[in-house]
Design a binder for these strands. Structure first.
Ligand SMILES: [Zn+2]
Length: 319
DNA sequence: CGCCTTTGACCAGCGC
DNA sequence: GCGCTGGTCAAAGGCG
């Protein structure tokens, strides 16, 4: 799917290497095993040269099958992902009164096996044989759509003075977090509309930010008993409010409706995944967020928002 | 040109 | 002090 790299690491070459490996393995193994029919297969493979080409939407295998008719050729899929192409050519019947003076042309089995890549659609294989050249086309499956991000858990929110030691998600397990609002923002998977999950993310994140925005100000309309406690918290001006979400997502960049500029990236200790630091792109808006993949369950992305936006959510951003 | 990432440097806090 | 960690800055470069 990604064709930017055409060097040694390109998917095509990987595919070819796989194919080669399979062939060589079989040859070696079978020499040891000394199984006659396998040796024959290996020979047949070696004697059946093939070209493999990758197209944007398909893989194409071109194989010389001299003197074979379509009916003599079998194209099948073994073990879910092994393309097996085989054929057999028999010597023509000798007629009475003729004899071979020379017998060089190849007879016997033709066969090749190819390990198909992940995105091969084994239900969409076609083959044509023309002029002794077999062309097998294996269509590609559409690239697997990254699963829709689902925020399944609102981790918590808490306020802290700017000068306080800044707690972090990685420093403290969930139970150490203030969880006053965790109930009202707990999401079930099936709450998510399939058609536009982004807007759902947006709505809820924005909603939460709205709470943040109204914090200490006039009239939060958010339901839930605990939000009232928050509103009564003292010294609102010097407080930074943080909100953290845990989202099941294969991509880190979740569209929450705002525009962000990344300003840092750090490795997270004991985690293979980095933490990224973003600042709201709006002029003079102090809001920051951190995004990192959950160390204990990499299927999740943890996003922590900090501060309140000084502006409205930009219209027409993202989709 | 404007806006974005990348990335090393820098800095503050903490434990030893 | 030293090393480690987390957070930020800013120069440089990418890209439309
Ligand atoms: Zn903002």
């Amino acid at each position: 799917m990604d064709f930017r790299f055409m060097g040694l690491d390109s998917p095509l070459l990987n595919t070819v290497h796989q194919i080669m490996d399979l062939t060589d393995d079989n040859v070696d193994k079978n020499l040891n095993a000394a199984s006659r029919t396998y040796v024959k297969d290996a020979k047949a493979m070696a004697l059946t040269p093939a070209d493999v080409k990758e197209y944007p939407k398909s893989y194409v295998f071109v194989i010389d099958m001299p003197g074979l008719k379509s009916g003599d050729i079998k194209v099948q899929v073994e073990d879910e992902n092994v393309l097996l192409i085989s054929g057999e050519r028999k010597r023509e019947e000798e007629k009475e009164g003729s004899k071979y003076l020379r017998m060089e042309r190849r007879v016997g089995k033709f066969m090749r096996k190819f390990v198909l890549p992940e995105n091969a659609d084994t239900d969409s294989i076609s083959a044509v044989c023309q002029d002794g050249v077999l062309t097998v086309t294996v269509h590609k499956l559409p690239p697997p759509e990254p699963k829709k991000p689902k925020t399944i858990e609102f981790i918590g929110r808490y306020h802290t003075r700017m000068t306080d030691k800044t707690p972090t998600i990685s420093d403290s397990p969930d139970e150490d977090w203030s969880v006053e609002l965790s109930e009202y923002l707990k999401f079930d998977d099936d709450q998510w509309p399939d058609d536009d999950p982004k807007s759902f993310v947006s709505d809820h994140v924005l909603n939460t930010n709205e709470v943040v925005g109204n914090f200490g100000g006039s009239g939060s309309q958010v339901e839930g008993s605990s939000s009232r406690e928050l509103i009564n918290a003292p010294a609102p001006e010097v407080e930074e409010l943080r909100v953290a979400f845990k989202t099941k997502s294969e991509v880190e960049i979740l569209n929450d409706g705002y525009r962000w500029r990344k300003y840092g990236k750090k490795t997270v200790k004991n985690s293979p995944h980095p933490r990224n630091y973003y600042r709201c792109s709006a002029d003079r808006c102090p809001v920051k967020k951190r995004v990192e993949r959950d160390r204990v369950d990499p299927r999740y992305v943890i996003t922590t928002y900090e501060g309140k936006h000084t502006h409205l959510v930009p219209n027409n951003f993202g989709n």
